[in-house]
Amino acid sequence: MLRDITLGQFYPTESCIHRLDPRVKLGGTMLYIISLFCFKNAAGYLLAALFLALVVRLSKVPFRFMVKGMKSILFLLLITVGFNLFLTPGTPLVSLWKLQITREGIILAATMAVRLSLLIIGSSVMTLTTTPNHLTDGMEKMLRPLKIFRLPVHEVAMMMSIALRFIPILLEETDRIMKAQIARGADFESGNLFKRAKAMVPLLVPLFISAFRRANDLAMAMEARCYRGGEGRTKMKPLLYTRADYLAYGVLVFYMVFSITAGRNTFYVLPWK
């Protein structure tokens, strides 16, 4: 019932993208997103799409898993496209009552839709090919320089990985409690808003109790293993760059230079600029 949330869910398989260091993937995603906002012409977007298609292909994650993430932002996408389509001033093409669709509006809406879709799919590639623990590891390492500003980088990363680790556990727990209450005749689906909110009580109370119990157990277990924060702590599997990672950085730099030069070339400039 509650298991259909993909944005931020790992897809287990073997591929060269899965094996990359999480720092490469984090940095790469960031650069990719930046590149999307630099383009001034269609060629740039075309290159970006091709590059993404290549990465998706290499990751061996079926395309429909990427698109699943899109569903959750479809609404946002529609609003953005809608606003841009109707509210951009310029040369009118079609007039509907008080709204008018302009040439500029169509172009702007299309760019927005393409940009947002690429952005979402691009970041889905990262989360689908990296386990949450790997991601937080990478983030911790990348943010380490912030320590000189007295930011508790390790602690924040630890909290994040615990939170991420607990999402599937709590989902499973929710599923279990929900089933147990349905077996006792509870009804979570029908009735008005007030009735439904009330029906959540038999679900939420046991869920909170179990979350607190788990948190308590975890804290106790960490303490029993002498955990006391990041000071002087080493890792069993430290993140190390391999040849593939350097190669990936190379490819990224190449992509950035190439796509941005092409994407900002005035020869292909979008009509309204």
Partner: peptide, 17 residues
């Protein structure tokens, strides 16, 4: 059906509220 076939889950004490 659910009222006729009663199911007590594993560790049912976790469903008390």
């Amino acid at each position: 059906l659910r009222s006729k076939v009663g199911l007590v889950f594993q560790y049912p004490e976790h469903q008390l509220f």
